[in-house]
C-alpha cells in the first residue's frame, strides 16, 4: 500500500478544537468581527495568510482566513460574513460562547520573500481580513521590512472593516495608507473610484513586493497596474478564495485546474497561477 504510517498513530484531521469567543463586534451590517481564544489555553500556531475551518456542530464548517497576526499572542481574529447556514449561525453568537476550529491550514504568505523589501498590499472588500494578518505582522516587526504601502478599497464607507485600524493607519507614519470607495456618501471626503484609481497617487518601484486579495474581478486589474510599474510577477502574491470544504486537500471543491487552494494556497505567487485558466 502507498502510505507511510499506520492509522492508529495519526490524529484525525477532521476533529476540531474548541475556541471561546472573547469579543464579538458587528463590523458592518453583514460582517461580525470575532476575537477567539483556544479553550484549552494552547494557542494555535500559524503564519499570516493561513486559514482555519470554523464550525458549529449541527450547522457545519466554513473556511475563514485568520485576520490577525501571530505576533499578537493568545487570541486570534476571524471576520465572518453572514451568507449561509454556518455563517448565519456563527454570527448570532456572542462573548463567552464556543465555536470550533480546525487548523491552521494551507500555505500563508512567504515572509522570506517579503522581508527586507518594500511591500505593497492591495486589499478589496473582505479581502482586508486575511491580509490584516500580514498588515499587523509588518507593523509589529516594522524594521524587518522597508517601505510599507497599503491600498484598501470598499464598496461604500459603511462597508469599511476594522474602522479603528483604518483611523490609526490614516495618520500613522509606519504605513502609507491609501483608501477608496466605489460609491461615496455625504460624509465621505476621501477618494471615490475603483482600487486602480489609487495607483497614480503614489510612486512605487519595480523592486516592490505586492500582495493582492479581493473579489474575483479585482486581480486582473490590479495585476495590470503592477505590470505597468514593472513589478515582476514572481514578486506578486495573490490570496485566493474558494469553497474549501475539507481544508486538507481531499474534497476537491477548491480546485483550480490541478491546484488545491486549501493546501497549495490560499496564498500563491502570481507566477504559479497566472497560467491556470480557472484561477481568475
Amino acid at each position: 500500500m502507498n502510505h507511510q504510517c499506520h492509522w492508529t498513530d495519526v490524529e484525525n484531521i477532521f476533529l476540531p478544537r474548541e475556541a471561546t469567543i472573547v469579543c464579538s463586534e458587528q463590523a458592518t451590517p453583514s460582517e461580525t468581527h470575532f476575537t477567539l481564544k483556544m479553550a484549552d489555553g494552547q494557542p494555535i500556531e500559524y503564519e499570516p495568510g493561513q486559514i482555519v475551518e470554523l464550525s458549529l456542530f449541527g450547522y457545519g464548517e466554513i473556511p475563514i482566513g485568520i485576520a490577525s497576526s501571530p505576533t499578537r499572542k493568545n487570541t486570534f481574529d476571524l471576520v465572518v460574513r453572514s451568507v449561509g447556514r454556518v455563517s448565519g449561525a456563527v454570527t448570532k453568537l456572542g462573548k463567552g460562547e464556543s465555536v470550533y476550529v480546525r487548523g491552521p491550514l494551507g500555505h500563508g504568505f512567504d515572509l522570506t520573500k517579503l522581508r527586507g523589501h518594500d511591500v505593497l498590499i492591495v486589499a478589496g472588500g473582505i479581502g482586508l481580513c486575511p491580509t490584516r494578518s500580514l498588515i499587523q505582522y509588518i507593523l509589529d516587526r516594522r524594521d524587518e521590512f522597508d517601505r510599507f504601502v497599503l491600498f484598501y478599497g470598499a464598496r461604500e464607507p459603511s462597508l469599511q472593516l476594522f474602522t479603528d485600524d483604518l483611523a490609526r493607519w490614516r495618520t500613522a507614519n509606519d504605513v502609507e495608507y491609501y483608501e477608496t470607495v466605489d460609491r461615496g456618501d455625504p460624509s465621505w471626503t476621501g477618494n471615490v473610484g475603483v482600487i486602480t484609481t489609487l495607483f497614480p497617487q503614489v510612486e512605487l518601484g519595480p523592486e516592490t513586493r505586492a500582495v493582492i486579495c479581493g473579489p474575483p474581478i479585482f486581480y486582473r486589474f490590479v495585476v495590470r497596474e503592477l505590470d505597468m510599474i514593472g513589478i515582476p510577477r514572481e514578486n506578486v502574491f495573490v490570496d485566493l478564495e474558494r469553497r474549501m470544504k475539507c481544508g486538507v486537500g481531499k474534497c476537491g471543491h477548491c480546485q483550480i485546474n490541478d491546484k488545491y487552494v486549501c493546501v497549495d494556497g490560499p496564498v500563491f505567487p502570481f507566477a504559479d497561477v497566472q497560467g491556470l485558466e480557472e484561477a481568475f
Partner: peptide, 22 residues
Amino acid sequence: IDQTDLLFSERNYDINYMAHRE
C-alpha cells in the same frame, strides 16, 4: 484503490479512509 490509497494518505493522512483500508 492504489490511487485512492495514495490520495488519502499523502499530505494530510486521512484515517477516516486509511483505517478502513488498513
